[in-house]
Amino acid sequence: MANDPISQFQIQKIFPIEVGGMDFSFTNSSLFMVLTVAATSAFLIFSTSGRGLVPSRVQSVSEMMYEFIASTLRDATGSDGMRFFPLVFSLFMFILVANLFGMFPYFFTITSHIIVTFALAMLVILTVIIYGFLRHGMSFLKLFIPSGVPGALIPLVTMIEVISFLSRPISLSVRLFANMLAGHITLKVFSGFVVSLGAMGAVGIFGAVLPLAMTVALTALEFLVAFLQAYVFAVLTCMYLNDALHPSH
């Protein structure tokens, strides 16, 4: 059972809660959501408690994160997109820390569940749709009719645009989910090889060096993926928000 690469994604109830036949138990997933929020908030707040004019090391990490997301958002949407800065910053920090928490052995990776990433993606898409209609009314639908397209092609292009818009929440959520899931399964499989080969005596221990090296390399890769996927999610959020702000492209 310990070598089963899927068991790490198992949801385990910690405090069973049931309301009206629905299972709202506080699970290991919930625990790591709480830990992610608590750790990130604590880091951002305590690292900036000095309010140093010349930042300390931890303070400059917080400032770098802030300015990194601020410049990403400003580049993608212009200065009127800054109203979504808290949303994009929260999404980025939440996903980044959740992904990095998943790198600890025995920790649960909340972003390896499709429902979590899909909920976050829907949060983005619904923000885009609601804000787009509130701000532009029906002219938000110009998003699906690119300017400068010959009249005969408009139905076709519009159909493609609608399909691509509808596939956004799916691609956004599946990208993050699949990356985290596949990475953790691969890590588990290779580290499982180390254990099973190691149990086979001297030759096995010698042979276990290869999967061990692979595990080390994959761990480094997974740290990169953890950061990169959070960044990709934030960048795509910025681009989708840009559609809500400036629908005619």
């Binding site: 506080f26 997933s29 919930s30």
Partner: peptide
């Protein structure tokens, strides 16, 4: 459960 706790924590 995941959706509820995600909504609360996020």
């Amino acid at each position: 459960s995941q959706l509820l706790w995600l909504a609360i924590t996020f």
